[in-house]
């Protein structure tokens, strides 16, 4: 206990500035409340096939943006861990990957429901091997393997190093999964067949006022959950007799 009493009692708040945290929390609460109300009740262009399901855009797409953001955060902290050996970096990489998985699972679920009632309407199919859908599933498998690898190693420093190497190696193969291969195959997703992703013309002007706040709001939510999980991990570690961090 000697080590933990020697630290300042609120040392965990040094992980995230409390003012920044309060500001982001207020932003997330306000923005997501607005997005949920305006997203479900606001008017949208009525397009055939899409119809009311277009509202899913506000929820499905930000999930993937947040997953990509968290993937980058996780890889960045893995790289920094290899450079510095600071175990807090490893905790950050782990928690970013975990929150990323959560967003990925929600993204894939919202995507499946959306596809079920638009692209595959009348076929009763939930899964039809759309390239982006399949690649997203593979991405989740890679993160699953990352956590399996972590659970196979007991020494914290070694676990961090080995997991960081796997994480960075996986990031190298991700461009193939997400950008190279989906463009070689037929897809119903916007951005297939060589065109750049999501273009400006895909989005009606009225929807932008909800879509852009939704993206920012879910980014904020991802950051919020991620920083809280890092703090919890820090506190749990600090409560042990011999903290690693």
């Amino acid at each position: 206990m000697a080590t933990s009493t020697s630290r300042a009692p609120d040392a965990s708040s040094a992980l995230v500035g409390s003012r920044l945290y309060t500001a982001v929390r207020a932003f997330v609460v306000l923005t997501l409340t607005y997005v949920i109300i305006a997203g479900l009740l606001g008017s949208i262009p009525q397009l055939s096939i899409l119809e009311e399901t277009a509202r899913n855009l506000y929820f499905h797409v930000p999930m993937w943006f947040s997953l990509m953001g968290l993937t980058v955060v996780s890889a960045y902290h893995s790289l920094r861990f290899l450079q510095t050996g600071d175990l807090l970096r490893d905790v950050r990489a782990r928690e970013a990957a975990r929150v990323g998985m959560l967003f990925g699972i929600i993204g894939i679920t919202t995507g499946m429901m959306w596809a079920r009632f638009t692209w595959y309407e009348g076929t009763n199919k939930w899964w039809n091997f759309d390239p982006k859908q399949s690649m997203a599933a593979i991405l989740l498998l890679i993160y699953g393997a990352y956590f399996v690898l972590r659970s196979g190693i007991d020494i914290a420093e070694k676990r961090g190093r080995i997991a960081a190497v796997y994480n960075l190696f996986a990031v190298v193969t991700m461009p193939f999964l997400l950008y190279v291969l989906p463009r070689q195959m037929d897809s119903l997703h916007p951005g297939a067949e060589g065109s750049p992703t999501f273009s400006q013309t895909d989005l009606a002007p009225a929807m932008r006022w909800i879509f852009y706040p939704a993206v920012l709001g879910f980014f904020g939510l991802a950051w919020w959950i991620y920083t809280q999980r890092v703090r919890v991990a820090w506190l749990e570690d600090d409560a042990r007799d011999e903290p690693d961090l």
Binding site: V148, L149, G152, I162, F169
Partner: peptide, 29 residues
């Protein structure tokens, strides 16, 4: 890919059938 991951699993205490789990998702492309 196999050479790097084989070195990784040699470091894991419980290596067992870990290589297929780590390797196969990376080899999809």
């Amino acid at each position: 890919a196999t050479t790097l991951l084989a070195a990784l699993i040699a470091r894991a205490a419980r290596s067992g059938p870990l290589l297929p789990v780590l390797l196969l998702p990376l080899l999809v492309p």
